[in-house]
Amino acid sequence: MSTETAAQAPVRFDTKIAVLLRDDLETWQRLNVTAFLVSGIGSELPEVIGEPYADADDTPYLPMFRQPVLVFEGGKETLKAAHERALRRALPRSVFTSDLFSTGNDRDNRAAVRAVPTEDLDVVGIAVYGPRNAVDKVLKGARMHP
């Protein structure tokens, strides 16, 4: 394969970054939860971050994920099951609970999650990263976000 052909070939990833949102969230909540969740993945897993960007004038921009982030949705039970599967598989994950809509800073967010046992968390969103097939199994029953 020539260098030019290789550069044009689609990039396939063995891993997947996915966000699963509860389907009863308001639009602003979906956006807010997604932003918070993916920040956890990027901060703890430097291998998912690509190189910095620059435009034609050499104006620099921050690096972003090196691969797509897929967003899914599901009902409350789908979220609960996905959360349990992500824990069982020990996949890197971030969590957003309904309690976090009433807090206003990181300290209070962490305290709100800390106050609730794992099985009682009212999960409205999770982000997971790992091998594609493992992430697919965690997301079983979810559907792509419209």
Score class of each variant (00 low, 15 high):
T97Y: 10
E73C: 06
D99N: 10
R114T: 12
V128F: 09
L121V: 05
F65A: 07
F65I: 06
S94P: 12
G74A: 03
T59G: 01
P68C: 12
T118G: 03
S98I: 12
K76H: 07
P63R: 06
Y61Q: 07
G125E: 03
V128P: 15
N105Y: 10
V69E: 00
L121C: 14
V123D: 03
D122N: 13
F101W: 11
V124W: 08
F101R: 07
P131F: 03
M64Y: 10
I126V: 06
N105K: 09
R85Y: 09
D106C: 11
R107Q: 14
L91Q: 08
R85T: 11
E73W: 09
T103M: 12
E73A: 03
R114M: 11
V113Y: 04
V123R: 01
G75A: 02
N109K: 09
L79M: 07
A111L: 15
L62S: 11
A115P: 01
E84P: 04
Y129D: 05
L100G: 01
E73L: 00
G130F: 08
T78Q: 00
V113Q: 03
N105W: 09
D58N: 15
H83E: 12
G125H: 08
A82T: 03
Y61M: 13
V116P: 14
A115M: 15
S102W: 04
L70N: 00
R107I: 13
L91C: 14
